[in-house]
Design a protein around this nucleic acid. Structure first.
Length: 322
DNA sequence: CGGATTTGACCGGT
DNA sequence: ACCGGTCAAATCCG
């Protein structure tokens, strides 16, 4: 099946972006904590799991519809047998799909992976062409990840990015970090935590929309880096020419195609599963995020950081749900 | 010079 | 026939 994370007005898409970023960072954190106490790894796994559940809740709650896209996705409803004769295009479309909307600060293209453009098309009814990208390491590593980037008609400041397939390569970010001497993983871990904290800026102000406004105004749910004086990790960001903190971890900019690897419960969008009450899903997502914060604080302590990486009181986190 | 991008042609699905 | 996705030659760029 495929998982579609629709921008859906850009709000929940932003949340998804943040959560995806969390997940990516945690995965990297885990790598660099391999010679730390087992507790660190356990906590990283915990964060990972919680994030996954949160994303699943959001998807379930927002009724992301994988069928509302163009007729090009018609293969979705086809019986499995039709894939037997699938050509390249059909194979691609049958893969997992992740759709997000990102701000233009990163051009919709700086997501930590290395892409090579292989085509551009004017799309009927769209004001802007669609760019087609595949993983740079397609040849060398056989990575089949593909993404499409198209500037949003409604708001040119945003890009709709659709990922197909999963990265099987050792992607750029991981490779860059791997250059670091294995003997000094803790500074990296700390940087990653800082990055994670910096990226956790989600706005809840828009939650008043619709009937589900229960936890918006009354929930000062917030992260705060408490990082004043600490510089963001530069080496983590593959973009070398621009302000890394903004472009890599700024609002809505950073995202990871790794969500397509999440193996989100296939029942989240299937008929066999009773759709979660949107309100309940959002409440659960909030709870899960708070668990993330708690776990992060423990991770910070376990990695001998002078102070916890996150403090609930200091963070300014809100979630857009337009 | 090698890798990345551009862009018109081509292909398959609808 | 039309459209979206991909190919590949030409071109660009460091």
């Amino acid at each position: 099946m495929e998982n579609v994370v629709d921008g859906n007005g850009g709000g929940s898409g932003l949340v998804m972006t943040e959560l995806i970023r969390i997940k990516e960072l945690v995965k990297q954190l885990e790598v660099h904590l391999r010679d730390c106490p087992d507790l660190c790894k356990h906590l990283a796994e915990q964060i990972f799991t919680v994030t996954e559940r949160s994303i699943g809740s959001m998807i379930s709650s927002r009724h992301f519809d994988c069928r509302k896209r163009s007729a090009a996705n018609a293969g979705i409803d086809s019986p499995p047998g039709t894939l037997v004769k699938a050509n390249r295009k059909r194979k691609m479309m049958a893969k997992e799909k992740l759709q997000v909307r990102v701000s233009s600060a990163g051009g919709g293209e700086d997501d930590g992976y290395s892409w090579r453009k292989y085509g551009q098309k004017e799309i009927l009814g769209a004001q802007h062409p669609r760019g087609y990208f595949r993983c740079t390491y397609r040849k060398t590593q056989g990575c089949s990840a593909i993404k499409q980037v198209q500037r949003a008609d409604e708001d040119p400041a945003f890009f709709d990015v659709t990922y197909h397939g999963t990265h099987t390569c050792v992607h750029k970010t991981a490779a860059a970090v791997a250059k670091e001497p294995p003997a000094a993983p803790n500074p990296d871990a700390r940087s990653l935590l800082q990055s994670l904290s910096s990226s956790l800026t989600v706005n809840t102000e828009g939650l008043t929309s619709g009937p589900q406004q229960g936890w918006s105004s009354t929930t000062p749910f917030s992260f705060s880096p408490a990082m004043s004086g600490l510089t963001p990790p530069v080496e983590h960001c593959p973009s070398s020419t621009q302000s890394t903190a903004v472009n890599c971890f700024g609002q809505g900019v950073s995202l990871s195609p790794s969500l397509s690897q999440l193996e989100l419960s296939p029942t989240t969008s299937d008929s066999s599963h009773v759709p979660m009450n949107p309100f309940e899903a959002e409440r659960r997502a909030e709870s899960e995020l708070q668990q993330i914060v708690s776990a992060l604080a423990l991770v910070g302590a376990a990695t001998s950081m002078p102070e916890p990486p996150v403090e609930l009181e200091d963070f300014d986190v809100s979630i857009f749900l337009v």
